[in-house]
Design a protein around this nucleic acid. Structure first.
Lengths: 344, 344
DNA sequence: CTGAAAGCGCTTACAG
DNA sequence: CTGAAAGCGCTTACAG
């Protein structure tokens, strides 16, 4: 059980430590027979380099952090994590997860100062955390944002995102094409850009269709449980605004709450009310009925964010970019054409 | 941007490095005025210890790994991760995530040999990986299993689990109490203990109720998409076994697939068919209708597993334990009493 | 193509 | 209560 070190390998192979190090790091300029000797010594001893020693001496952390403003669980976030993890491993980087929901955001900064990680990926809410963002910028820490926030506050950061406004407009336009004219909107009221953009897309679509925007049809609330929020908002909305024949929920989680609330009221989807979501989380295809929604490429967003971050870490002169990935409408079974019978 | 080291702090405070180290590690035997001087030097310099240097010199990794046999995303797994992450941070440990779905299980062993982590938490599938388990045991690596697997293969590991057989029996008994006699079962066929236990619990409940077990009502299949599996199994089951008035799905994800399949067939839940799930994932309350299921305390399982693992790491003489946590039936809206009208 | 020395930034073990 | 020395296991920078 005694730890095998690089020194042991060097002795066994009859070479210097530096030569073993060269082999480990795939440096050129190692004679073929030497290479063989070292490789077999490594294999015989089951040698694996000490990661901490390596980090300390090289000054590289080979790790990045992913910071969430809220929980680290849930379908949306977990799809991002899965993809980011794979991409990080592909580059031999470690991925650390941080939630600043309950924790002090300074933990994140300490991870950087303590040389645990060389940069971060921030979600929308984390990107809104003034203290965190301010420290990140004053320390000149590389970071990438997934989902938009105000660019002014992130002059050196890259973005990997979708066009929420456009996508929300398309979702609404789909309902309009189905003949709906009385379309409700439910969303969060967290002051995050994503939410503003989606509401704005909804409004634009209505406007272009010549339908006046009605405040009382677009309800939003702050809260931590999308399901709970949606449930209450929709119950309230449907029971008071009887003209509504369709609802656009600004996230799939909200849409699921809407599905459930509507079910509880004894109404049928999509016969009585059409519901469209946004995000296309894995579970969107598993609801009853399966949810029509806007697909955003979460896996691609996460893997590109990782790649851009690593690029920036390895080449600090890399210029920030703003990647906008395409979304698409996914038609399933939660919407159907408006019919006169729907008017209650 | 020059890195602040312990040496800088020592100079500024006018003490030795060792004294600064003592302060950092909260060792006693530091005079109050000295303590103050060091603390203010740390604050003034914004000093954070280099994690790698600390790990290297102390020989402690202060990190654990969580190994999943399948993906790292999904509601079930992500709830475990969230809770494990919180508990790890509480102990100042880092948490690393590993999936051995596509990756070589040796990556996990290398993380240990490379002194990245001092131990692991394994899920059911990872606990079934012969190569991984063999290496873990021959290297005498501390690990904890969440969910049962054969204990013979894990003589030194602790378990944090539920009694799947008993809980599955209770789920089935609930359906029996509602008057159902023709109860189907859908599950995975992955050869994992959890799955065997749940089927067995179902069988026991039937047997005690004097109802013969019918092979054709208990369908299982191997696959990676619970939704897809459930959808096909249930569609097939319901269309061929018309006597069935209730279905027990061995996981909530399968139950969601069942809900969707039944919806697609134009049948109503629970009026035409009752469905009960297992796990009580976050989304179980968000389905339409909300799912009646067996709750298992995923957060507690994960946090206890972390605590047991850290105990074992810090005190290798700690004896393995087998913690069985209670489950409970959560009644929502996907089941209702059998009525004669259901016989088709 | 290969190596000896110094050093990364901490903690350990030993003194006093 | 405090400190000087050695060392953790690598890589870097410099030689040759």
């Amino acid at each position: 059980m005694a730890t095998v070190t690089l020194d042991d390998v060097a002795k066994r192979a009859g070479v210097s430590k530096k030569t073993v190090s060269r082999v480990l790091n795939n440096e050129p300029r190692v004679a073929a027979p030497t290479l063989e000797k070292v490789k077999s010594a490594i294999a015989e001893l089951d040698y694996v380099p000490n990661v901490s020693a390596r980090k300390l001496s090289s000054g590289k952390t080979m790790a990045i952090g992913m910071v969430f403003g809220w929980q680290v669980s849930g379908p949306f976030v977990s799809e991002l994590i899965e993809s980011a993890l794979q991409e990080s491993n592909r580059h031999d980087y470690n991925l650390f997860l941080y939630s600043i929901a309950n924790n002090d955001p300074m933990k994140v900064i300490e991870a950087y100062l303590g040389k645990q990680v060389d940069g971060f990926i921030l979600d929308t809410l984390a990107g809104k955390n003034k203290e965190l963002v301010h420290r990140l910028n004053s320390l000149n820490v590389p970071y990438v944002l997934i989902h938009p926030t105000s660019k002014r506050e992130h002059p050196n950061a890259s973005f990997v995102r979708i066009n929420d406004e456009l996508a929300a407009k398309q979702a609404t336009e789909y309902l309009l094409r189905l003949g709906h004219r009385c379309i409700g909107y439910i969303g969060f009221h967290a002051g995050i850009t994503v939410e503003k953009d989606r509401l704005s897309g909804y409004q634009q679509a209505l406007q272009e269709a010549g339908i006046p925007f009605r405040e009382e049809w677009a309800v939003r609330r702050y809260g931590t449980s999308p399901f709970g929020i949606a449930y209450e908002l929709v119950t309230d909305l449907i029971s008071h605004q009887k003209q509504l024949t369709a609802v656009f929920a600004s996230t799939d989680a909200l849409a699921m709450g809407a599905l459930s609330a509507i079910w509880h009221m004894g109404l049928r989807i999509p016969d009585d009310i059409s519901v469209i979501g946004f995000d296309d989380i894995a579970y969107a295809s598993m609801t009853a009925p399966p949810l029509t929604t806007i697909h955003q490429p979460l896996d691609e967003i996460a893997s590109l964010a990782v790649r851009l971050l690593i690029d920036k870490i390895e080449d600090p002169s890399a210029k920030p970019v703003d990647l906008v990935l395409p979304t698409r409408l996914v038609v399933r079974d939660s919407c159907k054409p408006f019919s006169d019978g729907q008017v209650k």
